[in-house]
């Protein structure tokens, strides 16, 4: 299917707003600031992924993809980028200006259960996906994770306590 990626401009926006702009020639040729970059994704026999750029190979891993947000590891270092087009970047600004952003996340019990252990501590910095606590329900250990980056404001849960559905366990304040 033609997605007309040719001559498209894509911008990777990092966590701190840093922007990397790429012109897409085709699926393996890109350019950045006039510099041609030929890439290749190599899957080794043992399952490791190598990302080759201009012949230099980097061990990489795609950790997660959510909407247009990608977390990747290069040399074991984690990077978060959202992939935008010039239009979607502008759109982001428009929407950000129009909407009040929520200032955190309330992590509630998704089901009734028992708190087995608490990893989160007040004042602890958390990133999306970080484990906060372990809830045992249906005789299974479920690790509840943060979905926003921020600082743990309160830990309402107590280890060993039984909690009901939707009971507040951890409050996270957005950084």
């Amino acid at each position: 299917m033609q997605n007309n990626i040719q001559n498209k401009t894509l911008i990777a926006v990092g966590k701190n707003g840093e922007e990397y702009e790429f012109k897409v020639q085709n699926s393996y040729q890109y350019s950045s600031k006039g510099c041609k970059l030929t890439i290749e994704m190599i899957e080794e026999a043992d399952g490791f992924m190598l990302f080759s750029c201009e012949g230099v190979r980097y061990p990489v891993e795609i950790v997660s993809r959510k909407l247009n947000n990608y977390e990747v590891l290069v040399n074991g270092v984690s990077y978060n980028f959202t992939v935008e087009t010039p239009f979607s970047l502008k759109r982001r600004e428009i929407l950000a200006a129009n909407q009040p952003v929520s200032d955190g996340e309330d992590v509630c019990a998704p089901m009734p259960g028992k708190i087995v252990s608490i990893i989160a501590q007040e004042g602890m910095e958390v990133n999306p996906g970080d484990p906060l606590l372990v809830l045992e329900a249906m005789k299974m250990q479920n690790t509840l994770t943060a979905s926003v980056k921020g600082v743990v404001k309160t830990v309402a849960a107590k280890a060993g306590a039984t909690v009901g559905k939707d009971e507040l366990l951890v409050e996270i304040k957005k950084a």
Partner: peptide, 10 residues
């Protein structure tokens, strides 16, 4: 759910 119209269409 997708992040913008272009991605929704994709």
């Amino acid at each position: 759910v997708y992040s913008d119209d272009a991605n929704t269409i994709l």
